[in-house]
């Protein structure tokens, strides 16, 4: 009797924790949507300044805690992941300087088409490799889907780039779901219910702002933010909505990485290295992990200083280099399936 009572109390507590997680997500989302809709440019500037660096550090800390200490049979998968992450980021960073060269041979749309194609084929290969390791799944659908996407890329090369800008924030929500499946499966129903607030708020933003006047900012930073949201390609809706929607999604994903995942997925305090498999190998590995995390903190501080000195340039450089973490999430996510 007491055992079943204990189980009932435990189940109730688990459900409460799930509801608390969902409520936290809803609060973050509503606050983000309100601020992003009300003053999109200022909120975008503030949110990138505050969270761009810390969320990368939190993400790196989380990934370190989940990566195996030894690659073993997954050596090929991790090698291809690393080559793709570094290679694609380097190529992406090189494209603007190539385009500024007067002797350029390829146009911007061709270059981004090639980059996007390489990106899709890289992901397809990783999924294919993943499908052939335990737990296995039928990965035969990967290539038709990849070539469908390739067809779309070459019809509208820039549309795919804009799609990545809007879809990347959703990866954090997906990764949180994978983490819950692993560590707190009882929380998932509440979390899934809480997730509904994201599309609902996007609909509200669209309803309120789709025909709002053009954003008034004429300075380089405001225009860079508008262009990042794709207002030069998505001309049928107000750029007020585009910037608000992008800032809203970015802020929700910052909230997931900086607040929710550290509370749920670290399994220890961030500075405790015992839950990081690589650090548990001891010796140089432990020191290496510690140096990496401290170096990450230094980068966060440097990023804040650079934002204060020249926000526009730092933001531009950040979003080019930040592609590294966007790409790193993909193989990591695949290992969590």
């Amino acid at each position: 009797m007491s055992s079943s009572f204990g189980e009932a109390v435990g189940l109730h507590a688990k459900r409460d924790s799930g509801a608390l997680l969902a409520a936290s997500l809803v609060v973050i989302a509503i606050a983000s949507a309100l601020l992003a809709g009300w003053m999109p440019i200022a909120f975008s500037i503030a949110t990138v300044f505050l969270f761009a660096g810390p969320h990368n550090w939190c993400e790196a800390r989380y990934i370190l805690g989940r990566l195996p200490a030894r690659a073993g049979k997954l050596w090929g998968f991790f090698t291809l992941s690393f080559v793709g992450i570094v290679g694609l980021t380097a190529a992406f960073a090189y494209i603007p300087s190539y385009l500024q060269n007067t002797s350029e041979v390829l146009e911007a749309d061709t270059l981004y088409g090639v980059w996007n194609s390489a990106f899709v084929l890289w992901i397809a290969t990783l999924i294919w490799m993943r499908s052939r390791t335990n737990p296995r799944f039928d990965g035969g659908w990967v290539w038709p889907v990849a070539f469908f996407l390739l067809a779309g890329i070459w019809l509208h090369p820039f549309a795919f780039s804009i799609a990545i800008v809007y879809l990347h924030p959703l990866m954090a929500l997906w990764l949180l779901d994978r983490e819950l499946r692993r560590s707190h499966p009882d929380w998932r129903p509440a979390y899934h219910a809480g997730l509904l607030v994201v599309p609902l708020l996007l609909i509200v933003l669209f309803w309120q702002l789709h025909d709002a006047p053009v954003l008034p900012g004429d300075d380089p930073v405001s225009l860079a933010i508008q262009q990042h949201a794709g207002d030069w390609i998505l001309t049928s809706v107000s750029n007020h909505f585009l910037v608000a929607a992008h800032t809203f999604l970015e802020t929700v994903h910052y909230g997931v990485w900086v607040i929710l995942i550290p509370l749920i997925g670290y399994r220890s305090k961030p500075w405790e290295l015992n839950t990081i498999p690589a650090a548990r190998r001891g010796g140089a590995w432990r020191r290496g992990v510690m140096i990496l995390l401290l170096f990450g903190l230094l980068i966060v501080a440097v990023l804040w200083a650079c934002f204060l000195m020249d926000y526009g340039t730092t933001r531009y450089i950040y979003f080019v280099v930040a592609l590294l973490h966007v790409l790193a999430e993909i193989p990591f996510f695949l290992r969590m399936i």
Binding site: P96, L99, V214, P216, D218, D219, P220, S222, L223, Y316
Partner: peptide, 26 residues
């Protein structure tokens, strides 16, 4: 005023933050 006619601006060739012109305008 440009805000009354909803013009589109392409990103600067090569990307990056638009250059600053007279009066801090891009």
């Amino acid at each position: 005023p440009q805000t009354l006619v909803n013009p589109r601006f392409r990103p600067a060739p090569g990307g990056g933050v638009p250059k600053e012109g007279n009066g801090g305008l891009a």
